[in-house]
Amino acid sequence: MRVDRAQGDPTAAALQEALGRRDWRTARDLLVPVTDPDDHAFYVSMAADVTGLQDWIGEWVDAEPSSTLPLLVRGAHAVKWAWEARGGARASQTREEQFKEFWRRLKFAENCLDEVADRDPDDVTARVFLVMSARGRQVDRDEAQRRFDDVVARHPWHRIAHEQMLQYRCEKWFGSHDEMFDFARSTVAKAPTGAPLGHLVAVAHLEKWLDLPVGEDGEYIGDDAVRAELNAAADASVRHPDYRRRPGWPSVHNSFAMAFALSGDLRSAAGQFEVIGDQVSEWPWQYLNGRQPELPFLEWRAEAAGASG
C-alpha cells in the first residue's frame, strides 16, 4: 500500500495525469465544471501538487489571459512549492537559504492569488490559499483573520479554510493550545450536523499530543475526557446520518482514525478504518512516520481490527 496522491478520486487522478504531461486544456475542462467551493479548492489543491508545474504553467497563463483559472492554479502551486523549499523541519532546523527561497516563492504565490481575488470578487479558492500562505508569510493575527473572514463570508463552512486557520492558531505557529481548541470547538458547535468539520477537534487533540513530551503525550490523549470529546465530534460529523463524503474525504476520516487509535478507543478507530479502506492519507500519519506514513496506518488498522473482533 502507498499513499494515493489523488486520494482515490478519479477526477483528481485525471487532473494530475493531464498536468503531468502538460495538457492544460484537459485540466481546464476538468476544473471548469466544478462549482462547489469545497470541491473546487480540493481539486485545485490536487493540481497544485503536480511536480514541476512551475516550469511550464506560464504557457497556460499566456494562452488564456482573460481567465483567472490558470493564474489560480499557478498561485496555489506556488504556495505548495514554497513549502517544498522550506521543508518540514522546525524553524530552528531550517537553513537561512531555505527560508529565503520559501519567502520568495510565497510572495510570488500571493501576487498571483491577490490578482485572482481582485479580478474575481466571488472567487473562494484563491482566498483559501491566502489563508494557507498566512503562516508562511507570518502575517499578523488581524490579517490572518481578515483572510479567513473573506472565505467564510462566501462559504461559511469551508473545510480547507478551517483546517488552515486551525493551524495558524496552533501553539507551534501563532496561537496557543487554548486558542486552537476554542476555534475547533466553537466551529463544531456552530456547524451544521453532518458537516465534516468535527475532525477539527481530532486534529486539535493530535496537535497537543504531538507537542507534549514522551509519556505525557500518551497519558493526555488516552484520557477518558479526550475519548469522550472525540466520540461526540464524530457523532456530530462523520457518524451523523446527514454526513456525506465529498472529494477529499479520506483526510477527514484518517484524522479521526489516528486520534481514536492513539486514545485507545480501538473500536471507534476500527469504524473509521472500515470507511477508509486503503485510502490512507499522508497527513496526519506522517507524525508517526514522515517517510512512510502508510506503515503506522497499517499497524494501527490491524490492531484496531483485532481488538474489535
Score class of each variant (00 low, 15 high):
294 E>Y: 13
299 E>P: 09
33 P>Y: 00
198 G>F: 00
56 W>R: 05
306 G>R: 12
176 S>N: 06
188 V>D: 04
280 V>R: 01
130 L>E: 12
18 A>H: 04
246 R>C: 08
172 K>R: 13
94 T>D: 08
240 H>F: 03
150 D>T: 06
215 G>Q: 09
95 R>E: 15
275 V>H: 03
288 L>Q: 03
105 R>C: 01
11 T>W: 08
298 L>H: 14
221 I>G: 02
154 R>F: 01
80 K>F: 06
234 A>P: 05
142 D>G: 12
100 K>E: 15
5 R>I: 09
294 E>T: 12
187 T>E: 08
294 E>C: 07
302 A>M: 09
192 P>E: 09
164 Q>E: 15
64 E>M: 05
193 T>A: 14
89 A>G: 07
25 R>Y: 05
152 V>A: 00
160 I>K: 12
220 Y>I: 00
2 R>D: 11
266 L>C: 02
194 G>P: 00
261 A>M: 06
193 T>S: 15
184 A>I: 09
209 W>N: 04
137 R>V: 10
277 G>T: 12
305 A>C: 10
157 W>D: 13
95 R>Q: 14
159 R>H: 14
193 T>V: 14
264 G>C: 04
293 P>W: 00
161 A>R: 01
53 L>I: 00
178 D>A: 13
230 L>I: 04
79 V>W: 01
218 G>V: 02
248 G>Q: 04
247 P>K: 01
108 F>M: 13
191 A>E: 05
48 A>S: 08
189 A>T: 08
260 F>Q: 00
120 D>M: 06
12 A>F: 02
171 E>L: 11
177 H>W: 12
169 R>L: 13
163 E>D: 13
195 A>S: 14
125 T>A: 09
43 Y>N: 05
207 E>L: 07
141 R>H: 15
19 L>Q: 04
107 K>D: 13
133 S>H: 05
199 H>N: 09
171 E>V: 11
128 V>T: 04
205 H>A: 02
141 R>G: 12
142 D>K: 14
304 A>L: 03
138 Q>E: 15
96 E>H: 15
39 D>K: 03
32 V>N: 02
160 I>P: 01
228 A>Y: 03
240 H>D: 04
19 L>A: 03
285 W>Y: 07
236 A>L: 12
180 M>C: 13
291 R>E: 10
147 R>H: 07
218 G>Q: 08
107 K>P: 04
14 A>E: 11
153 A>H: 10
16 Q>V: 05
56 W>F: 03
158 H>T: 07
203 V>P: 00
7 Q>G: 08
238 V>W: 01
9 D>C: 01
162 H>I: 05
150 D>E: 14
8 G>L: 03
24 W>V: 06
77 H>W: 07
